[in-house]
Amino acid sequence: MQTQTTQGKPGSIVVKTLRFGDVEVPSAERITLLRALAGFPDTKTLVMLTLADQAPFHWLQSVEQPPVAFAVLPVELVRPGYTLKLPPWDRGLWDRQSSPEILALISFQRDATMNLAAPLLLDPRHRVALQVMNQAGYGLKEPLFGEAAARPQVAATA
C-alpha cells in the first residue's frame, strides 16, 4: 500500500495525520511493530507524539494510516507493580534482554478506561513494539480513575 510519508528535512519524515496535521519526525524515531495490532493490519510503523501539556499521555500515530492514533499511558504510573505473563507465542516474538516500557491503550467511551490485558511493549532503544496478550489476569477495560479492583477482572486467558 501507499505509505503516507514524504521526505522532510534530511533524516526526518513527514507523517500525515488526521488529528495533528503533517508532523515532521526524525526517521530514527519510527517504531516498527513486530506484529500488527489486532484490527489494524495495514499499520506497520508508529511514531510517538507527545503534545505540550498532555503528559503523561502520548499518542502512537500510525505512519501508514493518517486517521489511526492511539492515546497511551505508561502503565507504571497508574498500576505500580503491574506484572506481565506472556503466552509462548508472545515470548517467542519478544525475545529481548532489556525490560520493555509497557504502555496501555486508553479509550474514552462513557468513561476513560485502559487496556491492561493487551498492553503494548516498547523497546525504546531498538524502536520495536508488540501488542501482547498478558495472561496475568488484568482486564481489557480497567478504569483509569478509581481503585484497581481488589481482584483482577476476568482473566484474558487463551
Binding site: L37, A38, F40, L51, P56, P67, V78, I106
Partner: peptide
C-alpha cells in the same frame, strides 16, 4: 482485543480530552 483497539483509535478521544485526563491524573 480488536474491538478495544478500534475504540482506542476512535476520534471520540480528542486531544483536548487527553489534556484534561492528564491534569486529573
Amino acid at each position: 482485543v480488536r474491538q478495544g483497539n478500534h475504540e482506542a483509535a476512535q476520534m471520540a478521544l480528542d486531544a483536548a480530552e487527553v489534556t484534561e485526563l492528564g491534569k486529573l491524573l
